[in-house]
């Protein structure tokens, strides 16, 4: 299972970030920390999507700037939504 270790590590990151995002949102509903909850949710989403791309889809070793391009696309989507939420 040594070869699969990076998959388990990625899954732990995915699960922990999901739980943190939900907990921060649920706390935010009561304590008025909406902007922080938004930031945590969108940043966690970016990191999680990168984990799936790199580890589950195997993009880690890909050449040719694909990781940069896909990261930029994710940033454009999540950053755009985040910017509109701030207005």
């Amino acid at each position: 299972m040594t070869a699969s270790r990076h998959l388990y590590r990625a899954w732990i990151v995915l699960a922990v970030l999901t739980i943190v995002s939900v907990v921060v949102r649920l706390m935010g509903a009561h304590e008025g920390v909406g902007a922080v909850a938004n930031l945590v949710a969108l940043a966690a989403s970016f990191v999680k999507a990168r984990q799936v791309l790199d580890h589950f889809l195997g993009l880690r070793g890909a050449a040719g700037g694909w990781r940069t391009m896909l990261s930029a696309l994710l940033l454009l989507i999540l950053g755009g939504v985040g910017a509109m939420a701030l207005v």
Partner: peptide, 8 residues
């Protein structure tokens, strides 16, 4: 998930 449920 974050956009529909968490971001407000």
């Amino acid at each position: 998930f974050p956009v529909l449920y968490l971001t407000r």
